[in-house]
């Protein structure tokens, strides 16, 4: 554990909680892509199956349970409790175009051809592109509420901090996970355009367009 990973995890947690609280407080999920949230729930489910097979630390176990729980709570709020406010007409990204190729890639490029390892690899690849339905929705409607942009900013910061974490671990622990690093770089790049808009627009006019 290093400072980059800890702050990365906390930033990730902040993003998840910001989104959950926003939907809960406003009683609305307008502007939020339910499809991205389904993909994140799928990411956490397939990655954290090791909760059942190996214990790493109390911190690790608690965070995994919180992430999975919040992901399903978010999906529940969007598709059940506040379904009437869900902006399905603008959430038109075809997620099968992500899930199918990512599933195929996980079968072809992985550390070990075993069920749990393939599912872990699938979750890593899928996480790197899971935000695309949300970004697509924003580009389609041309706007996002400020709080939604804070959510995206925290998610992007989490990915960027994980890159520093891997640099740190490479130098000080000799740790090197090619699959996680390549997917992490791809994921961070997807946020770059958003980062630019966030810094130049959101903080200037409090409205993201």
């Amino acid at each position: 554990m290093n400072v980059f990973r800890l702050t990365g995890d906390l930033s990730h947690l902040a993003a998840i909680i910001i989104l959950l609280l926003k939907i809960w407080k406003t009683r609305s999920c307008a502007g939020i892509s339910g499809k991205s949230q389904i993909l994140f729930a799928l990411v956490f489910t397939t990655r954290y199956l090791d909760l059942l097979t190996s214990f790493i630390s109390l911190y690790n176990t608690c965070m995994k349970i919180i992430y999975v729980g919040c992901a399903y709570a978010t999906v529940y709020l969007i598709y059940a409790k506040f379904r009437a406010t869900y902006d399905g007409n603008h959430d038109t990204f075809r997620i099968e175009f992500l899930v199918v190729p990512v599933g195929g890639l996980a079968f072809l490029v992985n550390h070990d051809f075993s069920p749990l390892e393939i599912l872990w690899t699938f979750s890593i690849y899928l996480e790197s592109v899971a935000i695309l339905p949300q970004l697509f929705m924003i580009s389609k409607t041309g706007e996002a509420e400020t709080i939604t942009t804070h959510y995206l900013f925290c998610l992007g910061v989490y990915r960027a901090l994980y890159l520093f974490n891997w640099i740190w671990r490479f130098y000080f622990e000799g740790f090197f996970d090619m699959i996680a690093i390549v997917a992490g770089v791809v994921q961070t790049i997807l946020y770059c355009d958003f980062f630019y808009l966030y810094v130049t627009k959101v903080n200037a006019v409090q409205r993201f367009q």
Binding site: I56, N60, Y162, D177
Partner: peptide, 10 residues
């Protein structure tokens, strides 16, 4: 590449 025996990150 190295194969991590256990995935210790979130």
């Amino acid at each position: 590449t190295d194969v991590p025996a256990i995935h210790d990150e979130l």
